[in-house]
Design a protein around this nucleic acid. Structure first.
Length: 186
DNA sequence: CCCTGATTCGC
DNA sequence: GCGAATCAGG
């Protein structure tokens, strides 16, 4: 790729708009972040109104994806229904009382419900979003799309997704729901 | 570790 | 002029 007038123009525009070098590189396509920076310097456009150096390393409040005690999907046979006042002597309570994380989350959300399980697979509003653009996605960012692709504020979740999954824990659950009600063992 | 821009220097 | 490698920093 070579720096055509168009590309240079776009570069100038994006750079002045405050986009980072990597973002610009991604949008231009065919060039690396370094290439963009190098070009920027050669064009002597280093300064930008507000250089908020470094991306907003957003701190994660507390995803708290854990705590999914399997509420016993269908079974309703032995015990459980009532409030067994005498827990099994052998089985230590599997309750696991609270946790710092849980408490913190409750504090933040305030409105949080006592339902550790996500139910509606529909268009529940995503918890949080880093509001990443397509080109900002990396190997470890959640690629769950948010919003209307035809609309300008379309973006991606962008949460931590781990190395294997393309989505964060939250969206993985929404994405990979294997026809739940179908475990008909014999 | 991820990301940011800045510089250097061989091509 | 170009941009990978490297540096310096958040």
């Amino acid at each position: 790729m070579n720096w055509t007038d168009e590309r240079v123009e776009l570069l100038k525009k994006l750079w002045s708009e405050g986009l980072s070098a990597s973002q610009i590189a991604a949008q231009l396509g065919g060039v690396s972040r370094n290439a963009v920076i190098g070009k920027v310097h050669r064009l002597k456009l280093s300064g930008r109104g507000k250089t908020t150096t470094a991306a907003p390393r957003s701190k994660k409040p507390a995803p708290a994806p854990v705590a999914a005690p399997r509420p016993t999907t269908t079974s309703s046979s032995s015990m459980s229904s009532g409030s067994a006042s005498a827990p099994q002597p052998t089985m230590r309570a599997t309750v696991m009382k609270t946790s710092g994380a849980a408490a913190l989350q409750a504090e933040v959300l305030a409105d949080a419900v006592a339902e550790p399980i996500i139910r509606h697979n529909e268009n529940v509003v995503v918890p949080i979003s880093r509001h990443l653009t397509l080109l900002q996605l990396t190997e470890r960012t959640c690629k769950w799309p948010v919003g209307d692709p035809l609309h300008e504020d379309f973006h991606f979740c962008g949460h931590e997704s781990g190395e294997s999954s393309p989505y964060c824990s939250y969206h993985s659950k929404l994405a990979f729901q294997p026809t739940a009600e179908r475990r008909r063992a014999r």
